[in-house]
Design a binder for these strands. Structure first.
Lengths: 339, 339
DNA sequence: TCCCAATTTGTTAGCGCTAACATGAAAAAT
DNA sequence: ATTTTTCATGTTAGCGCTAACAAATTGGGA
């Protein structure tokens, strides 16, 4: 039988080789590496030495195939270009990496159907768990998650049903900024929204209820644009808004990008902030503190949301918890010169 | 032998099951999915139908284990919070995803040793290729790459040696912005640098050589801080610089974050831009166009660098190319009101 | 007509690892 | 001293897939 040798990736050193060199069987090497307390200390020491010496690199595919556990978590976020999700990603990484889990990142581009397609595609990696942004997945998505009994944690918002989640109330946050503008004596407060994902819509609802409660809600002041947000769009929307409603005295921008563009345009147009017009943003990006005047915003615990969601998922994976967990990490109103 | 059934991930449908249902062997299913032209059209059609019907999901681990190809690329970037690398990542994704490759993202936190550790750790996934930021890896890193014959493409800069790369000359870009400030009549031009990674140092070199050529280089105007850059740092460094050198009439900030902070502080202090002080940034982030005054910067093709590097790597993987390739995608000076 | 090549499908074995069961040795309990 | 329990290690088989080889089928061309 003179078969051609197969291609080998990595160093080509296998667990069996390590075992032979250490005078034990492969399974003992496996145990020394992954469940150290099931091997005597002396032997473990020796095995680790041989591992080092031979430059052994475990083969994750083989491990995964044999154990039916991938030590992999699928993370679905709507965008890579939005700092908000990158911050959450960093939080997730800070928890999963030390725990020996690999994260697979799927960029849904804010699309339900792409989200579903990504889930399907990444199922090939048989992820042990799932971290998703938002709660509004397609029915087919939910069905797959349920059918495969895939442990999942939902990020950035709070669920009304039995899904575990980590986030804060987008509506309450929207109401909070609106309430702040009201407290500053503003009464003709507009809402500038872009992208119109579920979070923006919820902030809009918070804005609405706060204004309705104060008796000064005017639907004509809600300006919504489904395109991705940008500073340019903020500037453009400001111009359009003021052209239609010169009496507008306050603006709640659904995110800081819009707000920064709007502030810059006010600066160019010589509009006095906050006297003539107060502007509030959302997310409290780094740049919010460095506009002229500095931008009031809602600070959101993105990193911590990611980290907490990852921790919650790991608990589920380890079977440490039975109860469905929901974690409200809140938000904070950052008042600066723009209001 | 009544063994307990093993845990199964995924749907539990295997290639064998699909084969049975379609009346063929497993290998034919494999071929129908991965090398369609080796199966007759009619049969392929039937197999794909059964795949759909049974909800078959291929098991990537098994594929990888059997074929010694992982269809996975390791991407190492210094930071997740810097838009520059996220943009490159998006470019990489846009190429790898359609090609059926999975990207594993490693965040080196700007650390050589972490970079090495990540490479070692991710070797467990036996990646088919490697995309790395910069050229200054540790010797041990290079040794592993060489020893494993791991195809690699280096991003963001141009190599002097035989390593394939996609980027632009950081030095030339640094010289370009400095030359622009000189052309504006500035002579006391400072350099504000943070993080001090290899790219910042090269921009500094470009700055130096441009000033030396013009005969107005003053080492006392080079302000370097190894901490991560931020807008706050830009503001602080501006204050310190002007306190020490009130005659300074131009500043080249190694990135836009510093520049935005510096501009905001000038605004606060009533310093006239660009007459009294001209400020230039680097990378041309979105926010650069929206400061007051708008920030001049060096626009860099980050997305395209990532995409081109990924394409180059795929060529290597397919063995389509023998020659080492180097791709200079250049940069562009964006002149705005701040200079 | 037969033969050879090209094409299509199947058989066998094994990738590297770990679950489950088995065994042997040491420690604890009787 | 004997039995029971615990602990440490080994044996066997198989996870799901694909490389290599083998066989069967088809289509020309001499």
């Amino acid at each position: 039988m003179s078969r051609k040798p197969r291609l080998r990736s990595g160093t080509g050193v296998t667990m069996h080789d390590v075992g032979q060199a250490a005078g034990v069987s492969a399974i003992t090497v496996s145990r020394a590496l992954h469940s150290p307390d099931r091997v005597s200390p002396a032997l473990r020491e020796k095995i680790l030495q041989v591992v080092e010496q031979l430059g052994y690199v475990p083969n994750r595919s083989a491990r995964q195939l044999a154990s039916a556990r991938s030590h992999t978590v699928l993370v679905l976020i709507p965008s890579l270009s939005n700092t908000v999700f990158i911050d959450a990603l960093a939080g997730i990484e800070s928890v999963l990496q030390p725990a020996g889990y690999q994260m697979l990142i799927g960029n849904t581009h804010y699309s339900d159907s792409e989200e579903l397609a990504l889930l399907r595609a990444y199922l090939q990696h048989s992820p042990d768990g799932l971290l998703v942004t938002g709660l509004n997945q397609l029915p087919a998505f939910r069905q797959i998650v349920a059918q495969q009994a895939l442990p999942a944690v939902y990020m950035m918002d709070l669920s009304q049903d039995d899904r575990p989640c980590v986030g804060f109330s987008q509506e309450a946050a929207g109401a909070s900024m609106t309430g702040h503008l009201l407290a500053r004596g503003k009464r003709r407060i507009a809402f500038l929204g872009a992208q119109l994902d579920e979070r923006v819509i919820k902030r809009l609802h918070g804005y609405r209820s706060a204004l309705q409660q104060a008796g000064c809600h005017d639907p004509a002041l809600e300006w919504l644009n489904p395109s991705p947000s940008s500073m340019q769009m903020g500037a453009d929307m400001l111009d359009a808004l003021l052209a239609a409603h010169p009496d507008c005295d306050g603006i709640f921008c659904c995110n800081d990008d819009l707000a920064i563009g709007a502030i810059a345009r006010c600066q160019q147009r010589g509009i006095a902030l906050p006297e003539q017009l107060a502007i509030g943003g959302f997310n409290d990006l780094q740049a919010a503190a460095w506009t002229t005047p500095a931008l009031s915003s809602i600070a959101t615990p993105r990193f911590e949301i990611g980290a907490a969601a990852a921790r919650m998922l790991l608990q589920q994976l380890r079977g440490e918890t039975t109860a469905v967990q929901k974690l409200d990490l809140g938000f904070q109103l950052q008042v600066r010169a723009s209001t």
